[in-house]
């Protein structure tokens, strides 16, 4: 025989799915929301996205090539994904150099310092985002509004910031609500905010696509959003004038983006469905707590990072249901 036979342990067939394909499926799921962000915030949104993606890939390549001296993996799709998610978490007016710093922190500290893809404890994009938010609070919280609605690129506060500010000043909810965009506007994406916070419906669509292609499971998003609704619902039922209603919480800020794309990051979420539900519930409760009582108007990034830290613990204690019962 001219060519030698191959011998390997079973199984001898393999699914045609791969880590790279998964990454690109997530990217694909994000495309509609990305397009919408360009439509809403103009060419600036595209600028931010491109810089973030290019910077993430470049930093991954450079750090692996020159500092870690390992094989470079910058094309495996994960750096691109981190770049897009990073861009989705910042306002479109952000200067380029802050994006670069964010990308460096996301890739360098958030991912590669832990040992690269698969070993990071925290979601890299969120590490970058939170770093930028704390270091450059002004630039990170100036939100250009919808360029389509006439008032071109005038900065305004996000609905969450408005509600927080007004509540602090003693206004009851019933007086604040008329000042805010309607639920329909928020669903469709006619509100100010970060790139990816614009349209809830497109994010949900992307999420459904990922669910269909089995990139994610329902556990994390449903658990995050469900616990947000339940927790904020309880508060709202206790005092509907002191707390915003659950629908409002669900549709504003990064709730959808966080629940569907950030919390479901495979690397930084638990392995089992049960674990993911616990993980998601933690995120929901912490998010609402920060939104209601914390210093920041929006808290889902912090909530996800906090729960990321619990993932190893959850994985240790939440075991899948064993066949034949526990020993």
């Amino acid at each position: 025989m001219s060519n030698l036979l191959t011998v390997s342990p079973s199984p001898h067939v393999h699914t045609d799915d791969s880590a790279r394909k998964i990454m690109y499926k997530v990217v694909l799921a994000l495309v509609p929301a990305m397009a919408w962000s360009v439509f809403v915030f103009g060419i600036d949104a595209l600028r931010v996205t491109l810089i973030a993606v290019a910077a993430c890939m470049a930093f991954e390549y450079l750090i692996q090539r020159y500092i870690l001296k390992t094989e470079s993996t910058f094309t495996d799709g994960s750096a691109i994904l981190t770049g897009i998610l990073l861009a989705f978490n910042v306002p479109s007016s952000l200067p380029w150099w802050i994006i670069l710093i964010g990308a460096l922190v996301a890739i360098g500290i958030g991912k590669l310092s832990f040992g690269g893809l698969g070993n990071n404890i925290f979601n890299p994009a969120l590490v970058g985002r939170v770093f930028m938010l704390i270091s450059f609070p002004v630039q990170m919280t100036v939100w250009p509004t919808n360029t389509q609605s006439g008032i071109d690129a005038v900065t305004s506060a996000t609905p969450l910031a408005v509600i927080k500010e007004s509540l602090k000043n003693g206004k009851p909810i019933s007086e604040i609500m008329p000042e805010l965009p309607t639920g329909m506007d928020m669903l469709l994406g006619n509100i100010g905010g970060s790139l990816g916070e614009a349209s809830a419906i497109l994010l949900i669509l992307g999420g459904l696509y990922m669910l269909l292609r089995k990139v994610i499971t329902w556990h994390t998003p449903v658990s995050v959003l469900g616990s947000m609704v339940i927790f904020s619902g309880i508060l709202w039922l206790i005092n509907s004038e002191g707390f915003a209603n659950p629908v409002f919480h669900l549709l504003t800020g990064g709730a959808m983006l966080g629940a569907i794309y950030m919390a479901t990051d495979m690397v930084t979420s638990p392995m089992t469905g049960k674990g993911q539900i616990i993980f998601g519930a933690g995120i929901g409760v912490i998010t609402i707590s920060i939104r209601t009582w914390g210093a920041y108007p929006e808290g889902i990034s912090f909530a996800i990072l906090l729960m990321n830290a619990f993932v190893p613990l959850i994985n240790t204690y939440v075991k899948p249901k064993r066949f034949g019962g526990q020993k």
Binding site: N3, T6, S8, H12, V13, H14, S18, A19, I22, D76, S78, G116, L117, G118, N119, T217, M266, V267, T268, S269, P270, M271, T272, G273, K319, P320, K321, R322, F323, G324
Partner: peptide, 28 residues
């Protein structure tokens, strides 16, 4: 066929949990 018999390159675990949900014995 020789093309389908070769294993793909091993990449780092991305902790997706698919092996856990695929295991018929509920192992990790």
């Amino acid at each position: 066929e020789s093309a389908e018999s070769k294993r793909e390159k091993t990449l780092p675990c991305i902790r997706c949990g698919r092996c856990v949900s695929a295991c018929p014995m509920g192992l990790e």
